[in-house]
Amino acid sequence: MLFFLSFVVFLIGLYCVATRKNLLKIVMGIVIMEYAVNFFLILLGYRMGGVAPIVTEGVKEAKFVDPLPQAMVLTSIVISIATLAFIVAICIRIYQRYHTFDVTEIRRLKG
C-alpha cells in the first residue's frame, strides 16, 4: 500500500514538472520526484518489527532492517544536493538574463 503511495507522490512530482510555468516550481517538482524515490527505497528495506541497523556493544542478534537501501538513499541524497545546487544557480543566472521565471517567456531557442 505504501509502495503505491510513493508512486503517487512520484506522479505528483511529474505532474508538477510537466504543467507548471515557473522555473522554481519545476525544480520543486524534480525534488518531489527524488524524494518519492528515496521514500520508495527506504520502504524496500523495511522489515516488520526491525530496528535500526547499528551494531553497538549491547545489541546482538537483533532483527535489523536492510541497511543497503539506506546507504543507497544517502548516496542519492548527496547526488540530488549537487543537482539541486547547480539547478538553482542556473535559475538565478536565467533570472539575471531574462528577468523572469516564466518558462513561456524564456524561448530563444527553437527549431
Binding site: 545546487a85 538553482v88 544557480a89 538565478i92 543566472r93 533570472y95 539575471q96
Partner: peptide, 13 residues
C-alpha cells in the same frame, strides 16, 4: 562553497 556562490549571485543581481 556552494552557499557562498549562491550568495554572490544575489549581490551581483
Amino acid at each position: 562553497a556552494v552557499f557562498l556562490t549562491l550568495i554572490v549571485f544575489r549581490v551581483s543581481a
